[in-house]
Design a protein around this nucleic acid. Sequence first.
DNA 1: GAGTAACCGAGACGGTACGTCAAGTCTTCCA
DNA 2: TGGAAGACTTGACGTACCGTCTCGGTTACTC
Lengths: 193, 193, 193, 193
Amino acid sequence: MGGMTGERRLGRPRSEGTRTAILTAALEELESGGYAALTIDGIARRAGCGKQTIYRWWPSKADVVLEALLERAETTIEIPDEGSLSDDLLAFLTATFRQRGQRPTLVGLMAQALLDPVFATAFKEKFLFRRRAALRVVLERAAARGELAEGADLELLMDVVYGVLWYRLLLDHAPLDEPAAERLAALIVRATR
Amino acid sequence: MGGMTGERRLGRPRSEGTRTAILTAALEELESGGYAALTIDGIARRAGCGKQTIYRWWPSKADVVLEALLERAETTIEIPDEGSLSDDLLAFLTATFRQRGQRPTLVGLMAQALLDPVFATAFKEKFLFRRRAALRVVLERAAARGELAEGADLELLMDVVYGVLWYRLLLDHAPLDEPAAERLAALIVRATR
Amino acid sequence: MGGMTGERRLGRPRSEGTRTAILTAALEELESGGYAALTIDGIARRAGCGKQTIYRWWPSKADVVLEALLERAETTIEIPDEGSLSDDLLAFLTATFRQRGQRPTLVGLMAQALLDPVFATAFKEKFLFRRRAALRVVLERAAARGELAEGADLELLMDVVYGVLWYRLLLDHAPLDEPAAERLAALIVRATR
Amino acid sequence: MGGMTGERRLGRPRSEGTRTAILTAALEELESGGYAALTIDGIARRAGCGKQTIYRWWPSKADVVLEALLERAETTIEIPDEGSLSDDLLAFLTATFRQRGQRPTLVGLMAQALLDPVFATAFKEKFLFRRRAALRVVLERAAARGELAEGADLELLMDVVYGVLWYRLLLDHAPLDEPAAERLAALIVRATR
DNA sequence: GAGTAACCGAGACGGTACGTCAAGTCTTCCA
DNA sequence: TGGAAGACTTGACGTACCGTCTCGGTTACTC
């Protein structure tokens, strides 16, 4: 399938420069004033483009931010394979917790997802559930190695990992650093024996 | 202490009826259209009062909703004391998970907290951290009974509990029912041995 | 007659001090911010009284200002009687033009009169037409002395005098000083021969 | 010269239909409820447009009314040239007094000018002083013909004419009809001999 | 190389909600 | 009853963005 070139459209093609300018402008606006102050008008002004150009390609400002985030983030989620659940988990959590620098962006996207069910679906599919899938691989490998107790609830384990991550990200009341990753990994390991 | 009535204020006193009408109207508006569609104008219209009256007493619409929630929720958080961590946790989680019926309200409040740092502080103090404090009592009792391993990270344990709760509340991808409470309680118990 | 004391009212009598404070406050507010910025709230705040006290005694803020103006202005309008129309007019106009110092107050009252027909009636009766009556005496004396041409239109003459006065007061495009009084007096005299 | 069309602006052009609708709505609102009851909200509602569209083009509601008035009034002020001051004045005053039908509009504009110095400037420039300029031509022609006494004060004469006009317009205590025009013209002629 | 189609910037448009202001009324306690 | 205090309903204010639209102008492909 694919057929990427098959559906060549008539007329002037989409301007790649403008697309990039919009994504960049969105992130800059977000950093300078926070997500609450983010507006389509503002993005358009900063990107030097018309509002219509934004509305033509994205259904909401959150989709712009999501695309910008996905573009700038590592496009591939690394799945460690060190041979033991303990090591894999530690590697995975350490890498994941490094995203905390993007807290304002992530928090803004989550806020939007909470307010807008349509965007929520996109956010889950394109972002949240892809991370979960990576973690699932780690856990399934551990299960195959017999490291997990019988009938372990993989879903719950994933929710523990991402629950702690997002809870700390959203409330900002406790660190998301390397020691935290170690303690959480240890907790998971203990819970699965 | 006392003297609560000593500081009787001059002028016409605040109308209790209006206050109640506003809180009720806020919850009704929230249920009928979701948090995103909640407006001060709408609350005032439904409550049959002026907007100014709302602005006089609450800094934002989220504060109105928060007060309404606190008023209607059980005012006291029950702290079980069954004699074992396992039973206490199960009781606590079962009671806590029953709040899932208020998902739209809670999700809306969280969204507002993510967008508005001032409200975030109020939300944490008046709601989130009070629940945490109750759970802390449960865990400390277990520690006193020697049920927890040396050097257990109470903060992390609480974040696991509330992380899972909020993560499922926000994403709505997995149940928050009694079996879930049982599994989560079991996981915590295993992790603390 | 009089019967001033006949209609003695029940209850606590009106506070003269408060009444004075309100009139003073009104003039001060007016001078400090102009008529457009005058508010009942502001007057009450400055006078240290409740709004209700103002509403109890005056129908509108303009009535407060009008009463303040009447109280502070010379309570009696002097009617010159020098023996000739020329001298009488000059004396009258010179005295009248001296009111130009109260331009902001007068302009504010006129604005209110233009917007509020009820106040307009009060303004005419208590202020404008009393001044006209004084001028009428001057003109009628001149007519009795045979200084006016047959069939002179006294109403028109008064409108010329007060028309010029108010037109310059309102537009503030030309002086209302002694030379202006002289020229206008001379014009009137020429026009009545 | 020319080039009027050269300065074509970017973006969607101003809607002439909306502009007309606003001006019409303003006059209708004014007629139906008087100037005091005129609101931007009301104009926008009646014109079927957004408030912003009004604010975009006019600084205040008075400016809307002024533009509406200027548009509907004879765009050119006729300057009679009959050969004598007497005839010219009579013609001018008769034509001018016919404006009395627009009393509510004119009174409202004057009220606004008294309360708002910024609008006052616009009102004088675009309306009041243009009428004065026409009268000045009449008087200067008379002076050139030798009909005016030496050293006649043209400014004062104009203030007499417009003073009487506005004084009667504002107070509404005496007619502004043809006989009044005749008497005022005669008075001016007598005063200038 | 003329025509067509979709893009682009700019910015005006009808709306909705915002948060503020003042108006005039009402309700409390105190003198 | 008068008066100070201050909460109340009401409604207009002027602003900010929303998402849509209408211009002139640009860039590709199609005939």
